[in-house]
Each structure stands twice: as structure tokens, then as C-alpha cells.
Design a protein around this nucleic acid. Structure first.
Lengths: 120, 120
DNA sequence: AGTCCTTACTTACTCTTTGTAAGTGACTCT
DNA sequence: AGAGTCACTTACAAAGAGTAAGTAAGGACT
């Protein structure tokens, strides 16, 4: 009785890549111009070295991020590939949704908290 | 030296809610018209009862999903709240991205697989 | 030149979240 | 009444994430 009419593994893979813990904020930091390891980390409270290193490697394997070690400066830089940059509309639509529905646990509390948080 | 210029906890929360394991496909199934527990589960290969029940409860707490138990039919139905329905553009932008960059591990293989998968 | 410091990781260990599998109670169908 | 489905729940093992400490490479200071 299996009715997987419109299930899409490609979508599934994408949403779990983007949504995997810390990946959203990491991609966002990169889109916002962060390039160095410590720069990304310092923009994301709670994110540790271990996980950042791991996530960057994964994103690199997925072709979203590129690690660049310039001959001159031995400090590695991270940047988004075209595939990574094309996530802009995704990040923006999430930011938009978050801005609208922000920190509202459930509809009953909507009115109460409408004025608290509000930036993107 | 902490430069959290434009970090946004509301965004962080949103991206981890949407991207949490199984949540993307679950929301998509609901947007596509699935209403019953087993209906959702059968559309998402790999998703088990345990996790679906847990995710639905969480999404309910977040005000994204509403569980409706009609007096007549004791079979519960699930539906998206307005907050949940407004995730449409997010899901669509991810589907769009997935359709374009589908299952491409890295840019080098782009050309090779351009014609394989392609639906949303 | 040597020591001190920062940066970008890695490793070891613990705790939480998932996956797997097997129930359970409510209703339905025959 | 008995068997089957449906919507969960419970128990346990495996995987992932958090915490903390360590390390190699490069620069700055003296």
C-alpha cells in the first residue's frame, strides 16, 4: 500500500544538507563575507572547533564550500562555490520566514510576543 | 575579539527546525496533501513510527502542525497551521536548488551527471 | 634565536539523539 | 469473537554532538 507518489530523494538530501546542525548558520556566515575559520566560528555562538572543522569538510565534499590555501598567506580561507552561492534564495526565504514567525512557540502566544524579536 | 556582527538566533532556530532530520520531507508531505499518520510515513522511505510521532509532536509544539481529532472519526489528522503553510516558499526554494544541483558531489562531476536526475 | 601567543585543527571521552525492533490499546471488518 | 490495521510507545544499541584538552605551524616580541 505504498503511495510514495511524489517523494523526492534529491529534495530530501538537499534539505538535510542545508538543515544539518550548524550548516545553515555556517553558510550564512560565508554568504555574509566570513572567510577564515575563526571568523566563522566567532560569528556563531555555541559552535565549537570540532564541529566547524567537520562541517566544513562535509560541505567541501558536497561541493558547496571550497577551501583555499594561498601560497602567500598560509592561513586557509573558505569560500562558497557557485553551488554554495546559489543557496542565497534558500537562506533568504528562511530568513524571511524567521523574521515573520520568529520566536513564536505556538499560535496562542502570537499576540503576546509580536513585539519582542524582529530582525532577520 | 568577538565579531558577531550579524548573527541571528531567530534564523538559527528556524533553519534547525526546518532542517532537522525528517522535518523537511514531513512538511513537504503535508503541503502535498497528506493528512494521516500512515500516509505521511508511507511517503517518506526510511522514516519510522517512532521518529514520525516525535517530529509531529515537536512541530505541533512549534505551532507549525496542528493535530485534529474529529469527534466522529477517531483517526487523527494532521494539518499545517498558517505558520506551517507559510513555509511553502522555503520548501520551494530548496526544491529548486535541489533540482538544479541535485546529486552532484562536487563541481568536477557536474557535466557527467547533468542529464540524470531532474524532477523537483 | 628562543619563548610566547594565536590559529586551525585533532583526539579522547561523555551525553544526547537516532535507528531498530518489538510491543500496546483502540477501533474495524468478517 | 478473532484477526487485522492504525497510531502510537518502550527498550536497547549505534551514531552524532558537546566538552575539554592537546598539537603542529606560523608570527610577534625581546
Amino acid at each position: 500500500m505504498d503511495e510514495r507518489e511524489n517523494y523526492c530523494p534529491v529534495f530530501h538530501r538537499a534539505v538535510e544538507l542545508i538543515g544539518r546542525r550548524w550548516n545553515g548558520p555556517i553558510i550564512r556566515a560565508l554568504l555574509d563575507g566570513a572567510e577564515r575559520f575563526g571568523e566563522i566560528r566567532s560569528r556563531i555562538p555555541g559552535l565549537t572547533d570540532r564541529l566547524l572543522a567537520q562541517r566544513l569538510r562535509e560541505l567541501e565534499r558536497e561541493g558547496v564550500v571550497q577551501r583555499v590555501t594561498a601560497a602567500a598567506g598560509p592561513v586557509p580561507r573558505y569560500m562558497l562555490t557557485p553551488k554554495g552561492q546559489s543557496l542565497t534564495p534558500v537562506i533568504e526565504s528562511i530568513a524571511q520566514w524567521a523574521a515573520t514567525w520568529g520566536g513564536l512557540p505556538d499560535p496562542h502566544h502570537m499576540a503576546i510576543r509580536l513585539d519582542s524579536q524582529r530582525e532577520n
